[in-house]
Amino acid sequence: MSELKQELKEKIIEQLNLEDISVDEIANDDPLFGQGLGLDSIDALELIVMLDKDYGIKLADPKEGRKIFESINTMAAYITANRTT
């Protein structure tokens, strides 16, 4: 699981172009949206694409994303439970 969390942090920084943030600066329970990393609605859509592309998870309802993308912890737990690749 900790490997997956590290991988997610790297992917988020890389794919969402968080130029000024390093992996060490993202805590596992930091909120990703709002006050935390300051991600926005386009980032949320990009994360949905990432789930599909990299882990074979298709979200039936994009609104589910809100809970899944709360933090690195919640993302990793969801991916572990649902991944198909």
């Binding site: 794919q15 969402l16 172009n17 386009i42 980032d43 859509l45 990009e46 694409v49 599909d52 592309k53």
Partner: peptide, 11 residues
């Protein structure tokens, strides 16, 4: 290999 549309590019 992996045809995907990226919302961050499309916008």
């Amino acid at each position: 290999v992996h045809p995907y549309a990226s919302p961050a590019i499309f916008v």
